[in-house]
């Protein structure tokens, strides 16, 4: 990998073995960190002011990316669905179909992926550069547990902010969808909203919130454990940040399906 000289084709089995090793190690680290964090939270050993500051950063940092992507996802979804359904004379179903897709699948996954890219990568960057500049060592010498000091407030903040961001993204997406449905398929907003009300049920929102809480947990623990296990210099900070993005996104996609499959699904 370091030597990009000739192209050598790795044995797929060795590759799989390598990946499995990495995955197990990573999942192990993240799980241990999760347990340590939970212990601090249950004992109430936490700094709410730092958590508040982190929440502020997570929210502000993602406000715009999550908003823009949510809006344009709503546009794209609505464009195709409203035209298709309007052609069948099913104008009254458009709102429901779009809303269901946005609430159950596209909304949470889009927000999750964007927050992984924005917040997860920033945390991995921050923590790994603290490691390489020996700030983490300095904390340890002062007998401050980096998990308590750095991870706990970030986790609490993410648990609060992620559902908020996800719902915000979903509403922008719905707004975009209503706008496009009217502009491109002549479906009045009232028709659209009636259909939404008839179709969407409480459990859809619960699924949405559960997904966002789980994604927040994945993002925080994978990014933080990747960041804290970095070593070296500037180059390694870059590697750690990249790894955090790749792993959190992949795991979000996988876990998203698992939650979808487990959630009480109903048809519109």
């Amino acid at each position: 990998m370091d030597r990009p000289n000739g192209i050598t084709v790795a044995n797929p089995l060795t590759l799989l073995d390598k990946y499995l090793g990495i995955v197990l190690q990573l999942v192990g680290q993240a799980t241990i960190m999760f347990l340590q964090t939970m212990r601090y939270i249950f004992r109430g050993e936490l700094s709410l002011s730092e958590a508040f500051r982190q929440a502020n950063m997570i929210g502000l940092g993602s406000l715009y990316v999550v908003g823009v992507t949510g809006l344009f996802t709503g546009f794209a979804m609505s464009l195709q669905i409203s035209k298709e359904l309007a052609a069948f004379g099913a104008d009254t179903a458009v709102g429901g179909v779009v809303a269901l897709a946005l609430i159950r699948e596209i909304g949470p996954i889009t927000a999750g992926v964007m927050v992984a890219g924005r917040v997860g990568s920033a945390m991995a960057a921050e923590l790994s550069s603290m490691v390489v500049s020996e700030q983490i060592d300095a904390l340890k010498i002062m007998r401050v547990d980096p998990v308590q000091f750095l991870v706990v407030p970030r986790f609490l903040a993410a648990l609060v902010m992620m559902p908020a961001l996800s719902i915000y993204s979903m509403f922008l997406g719905l707004g975009g969808a209503i706008f496009i449905a009217q502009a491109k398929a002549n479906i009045p907003p009232e028709t659209f909203l009636d259909s939404v009300k008839q179709t969407v049920v409480g459990t859809d929102f619960i699924t949405h919130i559960i997904k966002s809480l789980v994604f927040a947990t994945i993002i925080i623990f994978f990014s933080c454990s990747i960041g804290l296990s970095a070593r070296g210099g500037a180059e390694d900070v870059g590697h750690a940040t990249t790894r955090a993005v790749v792993w959190t996104m992949t795991i979000i996609f996988i876990v998203n399906y698992i939650i979808t499959a487990l959630s009480p699904l109903h048809a519109s």
Binding site: V68, T69, R118, S121, A125, S129, G233, V237, G238, A240
Partner: peptide, 26 residues
């Protein structure tokens, strides 16, 4: 800059390229 800027550059590139892609995709 330094090490921290390498990490920030990664974040910025992920965020901006994804945002632009969502818009262009539409």
């Amino acid at each position: 800059g330094g090490a921290a800027d390498v990490g920030n550059a990664v974040t910025r590139s992920v965020v901006w390229s994804m945002t632009v892609m969502f818009i262009v995709n539409y």
